[in-house]
C-alpha cells in the first residue's frame, strides 16, 4: 500500500515538473526579447527542478542519494538568481536599441547604464 502511495506522489510531482519544464521551454521560444526570456528560463531553474527532484527523492526513499539531491536543489537555488542577474546586466550594457523595448526615465540614465553596466 505504501508503495502505491509513494508511486502516486512521485508521479504527481514528476508530471507537474514536466509541465513546468515544457512551459519554460515554450516561453523561451515564444518571447521576443532577451530580458523576457530570462523570466521563462528562471521557471525551469527553480520550480522545474524542485518538482522533478522531489519526485525522485520520494521515489528513492531515505538514502544518501536523496540527501545529495536535496543539496543539489539548494545549490541550484543559490546560483540561479545570480546567473539571471548577470545575464540581465549583460543585456543592458550591450543592447543597442534599449529605448525601443523599455521606458528609460531620463536621458542621463542610459549613459549611466552603459557606463557602469
Amino acid at each position: 500500500m505504501s508503495d502505491i502511495i509513494r508511486f502516486l506522489l512521485s508521479a504527481l510531482f514528476t508530471l507537474a515538473g514536466l509541465f513546468v519544464t515544457i512551459t519554460s521551454v515554450l516561453g523561451v521560444f515564444r518571447f521576443r526579447y532577451a530580458l523576457n526570456r530570462i523570466h521563462a528560463a528562471a521557471l525551469l531553474d527553480t520550480l522545474g527542478i524542485l518538482f522533478m527532484l522531489l519526485g525522485i527523492i520520494i521515489a528513492l526513499g531515505f538514502q544518501v542519494a536523496s540527501l545529495k539531491a536535496v543539496i543539489l536543489v539548494v545549490f541550484l537555488w543559490m546560483t540561479s538568481p545570480v546567473a539571471s542577474h548577470l545575464i540581465g546586466r549583460l543585456q543592458l550594457t550591450t543592447d543597442e536599441h534599449l529605448s525601443e523595448h523599455m521606458e528609460i526615465e531620463s536621458g542621463d540614465m542610459l549613459e549611466e547604464i552603459k557606463k557602469e553596466g
Binding site: T79, V82, H85, R89
Partner: peptide, 18 residues
C-alpha cells in the same frame, strides 16, 4: 570589465567554501 558586483560577491562568499 565589470568589477565588484555586490550580488555576485555575496553569493560567492557562500558558494566557494561549498
Amino acid at each position: 570589465e565589470p568589477q565588484d558586483d555586490l550580488i555576485l560577491q555575496t553569493m560567492v562568499r557562500l558558494l566557494v567554501p561549498l
